[in-house]
Nucleic acid binder design. Structure first.
Lengths: 344, 344
DNA sequence: GTTAGCACTCACGGGCATCGAGTGCTAACA
DNA sequence: TGTTAGCACTCGATGCCCGTGAGTGCTAAC
């Protein structure tokens, strides 16, 4: 037995209805609501076939059918293949970005808000990650008689700043001179490379050892912990509105997963650089998420680094709408981050 | 009719039991579990009095009694007056801060984690706020031929950085010179003051108009949005474990309140500079929180700014434990922030 | 003032009947 | 051969009844 065009249409209708209502859908519903020109009996036969093919599940004998993960997969694949991602929500997304926002973190926070409130699911936005940031300048800024603020500027912005101790007789000009020399030495390096170079540099440039040593420590410190990406989560409470989470335990598990940022980041970042990713139910590979789906899209910055936007919702997600919104938001963020710079 | 010592003891027992179990407590329970040397009938009479005095509520006639907000208030007040805040969880808090953490944001995030996992309630930690930060240095760091990174350092660290456009022929030294001149002009000012001064400065120091104008724009930008405090929230999912939130709608309202950061920050910041604050149920002034209590404590930094730690839980919160933990955590954070500087 | 006794209340949970949405199967029909 | 009407059957959901038990308030005795 094979899928034919009619089975396909019926399956489509079932998925649509189930996504809408969240209630198992019966044969009568299909034949009435979606005028197929077929009686409920015929639909019933087809549904029986579809179940045998693995596209439908039956919670119990006297309930309707619900789409299986396999069905959603088929649904999403055709959606993606035909490229029929509507972009009718285009303006509604752009509207939310009318006011200029400057800082990347703010943009990311805001994007998570917007996506979650448009989709009514949970949204996660991850800051770009990928290419190692490269040092552009090192600057020492006097703070007090004995300490200075070290600011390292990379092609991704100020990456880290920290107060370090310097000798006593360091005025602004001396610090500037040191900054310049050091900048010449390690410009263009990644943090790792800079760390490797430092001992040699310290040896070569005699004098100012204390400052340079402090800087060295600071760099290797930064190298370890640095570039922890920013992550924004929005609309976790949305999920409680879906009957899928009327079970408190499930809800709690889900929420506590949303709170363990590291794990969540890994899940969202997922496997990839693909423009779109859709993982349905078990495909997520996360036990707590067997009845969730995750849809992700990417955006990129001028440096070519990729950030990720993700939406987490029940398996019966409005995939097409979500894909559309993610698509637009991806472009929007790409524009913001790679077009004009911060302060245009 | 007045409160006497015995009524007090009975009320205490009722509160203790209810905090423990969350189930209305009956007269028999009290006379058996807390050996008062009184029969259930006597307790019953006293309970009836306590109800009349407004310290107890009765969900329905054949259920036990539950403490009213007024009862908790009394309970907490005696707790605070007698100063009997045990600190047996001292080491367990300190243990969580063994590894050195440097960045303030990380400390705050971590503190929220620790407090929520120790109390099993929801924890909120707000970064210090208070004194307006004062500018120490302005530094322009070349980024590309046409743009530079403006870094403003205040007595609270780098407060903001942003790329601005400069004229074409600006090398590192020129930018440094401008930075120095400007720093001399506005050192010690708050952002507002600096903004007020800028037009006059621009008029006076002819040349480099473009750079200064850009800086001006950036400053006034910063003035508006700046010093948005950092806030960390931990353990929101904990609340779902309490029967108080078995009602999904309540749970959703609560969670979505936790997501609206600004509102939440206002609530937690509350009215004050007091060392401890306990707001019980309606006292919170937040409709969504009539059956929550909020306990807050403060910590302070070297600069004398005050940050807030808050715990949100059901009204039947283990107040004494929470106060204890907040007390210790407050000291811990104060030590961290006012003792050694970042990079000691 | 305390307590034993007793009637009364009322949420909770199990058992039971009813209802209805939905199915599968069969037989008739185009 | 595919479609459809009809029908018996299944089974979760709903509502009702009723027994149970925790808890109360009141009264009378100590």
């Amino acid at each position: 037995m094979n899928m034919d065009e009619r089975k396909m249409r019926i399956l489509q209708a079932i998925i649509d209805d189930y996504i809408l209502t969240g209630v198992p859908v019966g044969s009568r519903t299909i034949s009435r609501k979606y005028d197929m020109g077929l009686s409920s009996a015929t639909i019933r036969n087809e549904m029986s076939d579809l179940e045998e093919l693995g596209f439908l599940d039956q919670p119990h004998v006297s309930a309707g059918r619900i789409p299986s993960a396999k069905a959603y997969r088929l649904y999403v694949d055709t959606l993606l293949q035909t490229g029929r991602i509507p972009d009718n929500s285009d303006e509604s997304v752009r509207a939310h970005f009318s006011g200029r926002i400057h800082q990347m973190e703010d943009v990311i926070d805001h994007a998570a808000q917007v996506v979650s409130s448009l989709t009514h699911y949970t949204a996660v936005v991850l800051s770009p990650k990928g290419v190692q940031p490269r040092i552009q300048t090192v600057q020492l800024v006097p703070v007090s008689a004995e300490s200075a603020l070290a600011v390292i500027v990379t092609d991704m912005g100020v990456i880290r700043d920290s107060v370090i101790r310097v000798g006593t007789d360091m005025d602004s000009d001396t610090l500037y001179a040191i900054s310049r020399t050091l900048t010449n030495e390690i410009r263009g390096c990644t943090l790792q490379e800079a760390c490797r170079k430092m001992p040699e540099i310290i040896r070569r440039l005699q004098g100012n050892d204390q400052v340079l040593q402090e800087l060295y420590g600071y760099l290797s410190d930064g190298q370890k912990t640095e570039h922890r990406p920013h992550m924004a989560v929005g609309g976790t409470s949305n999920m409680l509105a879906y009957p899928e989470y009327s079970d408190m335990d499930k809800a709690r598990n889900f929420l506590s997963l949303m709170e363990t940022r590291d794990k969540l980041a890994d899940i969202i970042r997922g496997n990839g650089e693909m423009a779109f990713t859709v993982r349905i139910g078990p495909e997520t590979g996360v036990p707590e998420m067997t009845d969730c789906s995750i849809v992700t899209a990417t955006y990129s910055t001028r440096g070519g680094q990729q950030g990720t936007i993700g939406v987490i919702g029940p398996t019966r997600m409005r995939y097409s709408q979500v894909l559309s919104i993610l698509n637009i938001m991806g472009h929007q963020l790409t524009d913001l981050f790679s077009g004009e710079d911060d302060n245009a």
